[in-house]
């Protein structure tokens, strides 16, 4: 498999998971840069060109609330999970854990004896 194919499939795999990671992180309020830093700190390095539009899209869908706040002499837009987003996060988390279990079983079975 070429690097290009791997990169394409990697991005596809990450796409859905990033939504979950962003929703999970926004249980506490964050502005764009602080959200990116938080994700980076736990090992999820998301390109800014992906993260900021994703946050906007989730806000447009009503899953996040946002508010402009003045801080350290500058304005920042803070995002946080909306009640609708919180409900969705709960369902998605359950789905993710279930999927993770199933896929792990498949992958582990592939490594074991036939």
């Amino acid at each position: 498999m070429s690097d290009e194919q791997f990169e394409k499939l990697r991005q596809e795999l990450r796409r859905g998971i990033l939504v979950l990671a962003v929703l999970g992180s926004l249980r506490k309020p964050h502005y764009g840069y602080s959200l990116r830093k938080q994700l980076q700190d736990v090992g999820l390095d998301i390109d800014e060109g992906t993260l900021y539009p994703l946050v906007r899209r989730l806000a447009d869908q009503g899953l996040l609330t946002s508010e402009w706040q003045q801080g350290e002499g500058r304005e920042r837009r803070y995002y946080q999970l909306s009640p609708e987003g919180a409900g969705l996060l709960e369902s998605l988390t359950a789905e993710w854990q279930q999927l993770n279990n199933h896929v792990s079983k498949i992958l582990e079975a592939g490594n074991g004896p036939d």
């Binding site: 502005y31 764009g32 840069y33 602080s34 304005e75 837009r77």
Partner: peptide, 16 residues
């Protein structure tokens, strides 16, 4: 709306 937010994000990064 988008440019205002994008500018804030850029300034945050420069601040870091």
């Amino acid at each position: 709306e988008i440019t205002r937010e994008l500018r804030a994000n850029i300034l945050d990064k420069l601040e870091a």
